[in-house]
């Protein structure tokens, strides 16, 4: 969880500084004498660092928690409903494996039951991070556009994508993180012949963060289309259809119909690496001489960076067409 925050803040912090660089260039175009000197109160440094963004993020998180605590009943209901959804999902797969064992099978697409539980735990983990950090904010973006509330975001001396993306943290969704950890603790020792190495324990959270960032990028890029399309029109709902595909092992996408899907969802919209890579890192034995797996791991890093860059581009372009709403 903390890793997720740090990674997110870091990425944005870096971008904020990049912006300032651009602004510096723009400022240089004007003769310096033309600039009115800032008043003493504004003498604060012009460029924002990681700590500034982290400070704002923590304030968002704090205010969200205060808000969530105000509506206690709602908070409890949300926690329970999101937990029970995860538990029911889990029960369904337990049932499937149970049925399979009766029929004499042991694995689905190479995943044993406990390995697959690790896969599900990873799904829950990534999804709860996305829900907690970004989902409410992406949903609100079209509302902000419609009502002109985006005006206030654009007035602030900070990166607008950062301000829009993490304004509200949904703490209720974090309850599922505990469930995921419990599920990992239950399943991992039950996987036959699995010896966890330090490398696996380091890589797993790293790829959780990368997967979260990929899902975030797709989400914010789709939500940002509401700025273009206006009113309540947005491609945001598309995110849910798309990410459905990420919830299954990529091995099931095979054959005449499966293979093209697998390629599209790996290389075009890289949602298949989101869960698959971290889950495989933890649940399957790490073998150095598996070039495919290494390549996929390297690709996942590139996919996360690429997704962020593209989402940034889409968001920035969308902002340019912002027209604000009448007062």
């Amino acid at each position: 969880m903390r890793k997720g925050e740090g990674g997110r803040g870091n990425a944005e912090g870096g971008k904020g500084q990049g912006d300032d660089g651009d602004n510096g260039a723009a400022a240089a175009r004007l003769p310096s004498s033309f600039r009115l000197p800032p008043s003493s109160a504004q003498a604060a440094s012009a460029s924002l660092g990681f700590s500034d963004y982290a400070g704002v993020f923590l304030m968002f998180a704090r205010n969200s928690l205060i808000r969530d605590m105000t509506f206690r009943a709602n908070f409890i209901i949300e926690t329970i409903s999101s937990l029970s959804w995860a538990v029911m999902n889990l029960g369904f797969y337990a049932l499937v494996y149970n049925l399979m064992e009766h029929a004499g099978g042991r694995t689905i697409a190479g995943w044993t039951q406990h390995q697959f539980f690790v896969f599900i735990a990873t799904t829950i983990l990534v999804n709860s991070l996305v829900e907690a950090l970004f989902m409410e904010n992406a949903e609100e973006l079209s509302e902000l556009t419609r009502t002109g509330g985006l005006d206030f975001v654009l007035l602030k001396p900070m990166d607008p994508q950062f301000l829009v993306s993490v304004k509200k943290i949904s703490w209720a969704s974090l309850g599922k993180v505990l469930l995921a950890v419990a599920l990992l603790a239950y399943s991992l020792p039950r996987i036959e012949g699995l010896q966890l190495s330090l490398l696996q324990l380091v890589l797993y959270p790293l790829y959780i963060v990368l997967g979260t960032l990929i899902l975030y990028s797709i989400m914010i890029a789709l939500a940002a289309t509401s700025i273009w399309l206006g009113r309540n029109q947005s491609l945001y709902d598309f995110w849910f259809y798309l990410t459905n595909f990420s919830r299954y092992p990529m091995e099931i996408y095979s054959g005449r119909f499966g293979a093209p899907l697998r390629h599209a969802f790996t290389f075009v919209v890289p949602i298949l690496v989101v869960i698959n890579v971290p889950a495989a890192i933890l649940a399957k034995p790490m073998t150095a001489n598996n070039p495919d797996k290494l390549l996929l791991g390297a690709f996942a890093v590139a996919a996360a960076v690429g997704s962020l860059v593209i989402s940034r581009w889409v968001f920035t372009r969308a902002l340019m067409s912002y027209r604000s709403a009448s007062s």
């Binding site: 808000r67 509330g149 005006d151 007062s327």
Partner: peptide, 22 residues
């Protein structure tokens, strides 16, 4: 520019920017 945005403010009587529930 951030430098500019730190030096002015816009207040709109018909919109609010404060957190509603806090």
């Amino acid at each position: 520019e951030n430098q500019y945005r730190r030096r002015f403010a816009l207040v709109m009587g018909q919109k609010n920017q404060l957190w509603w529930d806090l």
